[in-house]
Every structure is written in structure tokens, then in C-alpha cells.
Computed example of a mutant assay.
Amino acid sequence: MDFPANLDAVYERIDQFDPERYARTRNFLNGGVSYLSPYLSRGFITVPQVVQRLKDRGIGLEQAEKFIQELAWREFYTRTWFQKGDAIFNDIRHPQEGVLHSGIPVAVLEASTGIKALDSHFGAFFESGYLHNHLRMYLAAITCNVGKYHWQAPASWLYYHLLDGDLASNALSWQWCAGTFSNKQYYVNQVNVNTYTGTGQRGTFLDCDYEDLPMRPVPEVLQKSTQLDLVFTPPATKTPVLQDGVPTFIYTHYTLDPTFHEGETGNRILVLEPSHFAKYPMAPKTIQFILDLAANIPGIQVFYGEYAELNIKGIFRDHPINPHFHGIREEHPSLAPGLPGEFNSFFSFWNKLSKQLR
């Protein structure tokens, strides 16, 4: 699947999307997924904008409920990030059980786990920057719960390569699978893999009943581990030239909406902070995708440096990565702005949100 960095192409993708087919087939690798996640993660489009375009086509909550529910997971994770801060990058509710290894299995990096449906997609992942959500869950189940690795290192590796790498969605999804953000660990067996990937493989370390999986020793193929060295290559940028007497609109790699104060005169700066990328590096392919999306914003200048170095008070959208920004902070786009409270589970959040949407 390709991901064009063009707003009209993204709007066309939304307008051609069939939410009813999505509800029926989304768990299959060839199912009717939206392929909107790289744009949603970057704030290039927002969840409310997607829902509004569906409404403009006459598609209501009843027809699109499953899709909107999946979009709401993104809001739930972002909301948790706002509320918990950096706590989401450690075991958030209780320690991961049964950890025996650190780092990441070499078999994952070399696409040699022996699970053909996974290995074939891992091999292409470095080029595409995209994995179907079911493959991500399989990866987490095999690495954390079958291989007994702590979730943090493999989660960092996945985030590094994903075009749609959202820190909250990534970390909390891994924690949901590893059982540190849920009531139990997520397991998958070979029958499940075969069903949703259209394969018929047998005789693998997953080829057993679900109840047997937690009792089995770590497969030999997953025992060899390595530590990660994720290298970030800074983009070449210049110090922004600012026009006096006009506002300055600030963007980050999570808030790249071209409609943000569209048509207003002002300086426009995409700020990429070295301190952030030192902690959470991204692959060159992902950085280039971000720069290509930013090119849709007329007159934008890219600045690789700390926001404080600009010595300005900009106008920007609120996001968990920019609590230290000074200036005019505008509300983060949400399906349910003002919905109060913290929620212990997604479905407690969804129950309140869905009532508000109706």
C-alpha cells in the first residue's frame, strides 16, 4: 500500500472508504481497512474531520460504528497520554509477568521466526513502514508472551519504523498485549494466524491450543536476543526567518493539519525538537514522510531545534508532546471535547463517548 503525501488524495481515500466492509473484514490482511493511520497519527487529518466527511456522505453512527469505535481507541490512548504523561512509557498498571529476556529477538529483526505469515511481512516492513494491526498484535504476542521479552524494546523498534508511529497508541497497544494495561496477556495460535492471513501453515511453535501456550517454554528460535541501536538522522534545516507583526503558527510531527488557521497571514514553523527525537527516534523514511506532509502547508519552514530557541509565543494545537510550549494553546481535536473524567478501560470511555455522539 502506498501513502501519498497529498491532502486531496487523503480526502479521496476517506470518501471511497466503506465502513460497513471494514466492520466485516478489518481483521483479515486483505480486509477493507482505511489506510488512514499515517495521516491521523501525524495530525494531517483529525478524527473529527474523518467522521464529518462520513456524515457528509450520509453515513451515520449506526453504519460506521465499528470504524468510529476504532478511531476512538486513538482518542482513548491520546487522552491517557495527556493524563498520565511519561508514565505510559513504563508498565502502567502492574509489572509485566514472566519476563525472561531483554532487547528484541534476533528472529524478529531477521524475519526468521518460522511463522511464514509474519516473516513475509516483516521483510517488507522496513520499506513500507506499515503493518496491518493484526500483525502488530501477533508480533507483540509472540515477542512478549511467547518469547518472554519485556515490551519496551520491541515497541521502540516498531515505532521507529512505522509511518503511523504514534507514541501513545504504540506503547499502550503493546502494554495491552503484554498485560500491563489489561487484565490478561494476549495470545495467538497458528489457527488464528492462518485464518486471518489466508495461510495454512502447521507445525510451528504456535500450533497448539490456546490454553497450552502459556505453559510452553520459550521456543529456541526466539531465545537469541540483541539490544537495539536506533539511529536518528536529523533533517537538514535552516533557522526560520520570521516576519514581524504577524502571528506565528507552530506545528509538530503530530499536528500537521493544513487547515489549521488556513488562509491567515502568519509565519508557519514545523518544530522538530532534538530532545524529543533523542528519546524517541524515527527512521529516515518516516521523517521524510513527515516533511512531505508538511509541504502541503503554504510557506512552512522546518526548524530542527528546541522550541525555546525560537524565543516566541506561537499559536499551536495542544498535544502531549508540547506541554512546555509557550503561547496560545488551542484545544486538541476530539470527538467529544470536554468529556470529563479518567477511564480505567476503553469501553468505559466508549460507553460515555458513544452516548455523546448520538
Rank of each mutant, 00 (worst) to 15 (best):
P4L: 13
P4Q: 11
N6I: 05
R13E: 03
I14K: 02
Q16M: 08
R21C: 11
R24Q: 13
T25F: 07
S34N: 06
P38T: 04
P38N: 09
S41N: 08
K55I: 07
R57E: 03
K66F: 10
L71P: 00
E75I: 01
Y77H: 13
D86G: 00
I88S: 12
N90D: 12
N90T: 14
H94I: 08
V99W: 01
L100P: 00
A107G: 12
A107H: 09
G114F: 03
H121S: 10
F122R: 10
A124S: 13
F126C: 08
A140S: 14
A140R: 08
V146F: 00
Y160S: 12
D164R: 06
D166V: 12
S169N: 15
N183A: 13
Q185N: 10
V193H: 02
T197K: 02
G198V: 04
G200I: 12
D212I: 01
L213A: 02
R216M: 14
L222R: 07
K224G: 00
K224V: 03
D229F: 00
D229P: 01
D229Q: 06
L230Q: 04
T233I: 05
T233K: 09
G245P: 00
G245F: 05
P247M: 12
I250P: 00
T252D: 13
T252N: 10
D257F: 01
P258N: 02
E262I: 08
E264H: 13
G266D: 15
V271R: 04
F277C: 13
P284R: 10
I287Y: 03
I290P: 05
I290A: 01
I300C: 07
Y304T: 01
G305T: 00
G305D: 00
E306D: 07
L310M: 08
I315E: 15
R317S: 05
D318T: 09
H319A: 09
P323D: 04
R329H: 04
H332P: 00
A336E: 02
L339M: 14
L339Q: 04
N344Y: 10
F346D: 14
N351T: 09
K355Q: 13
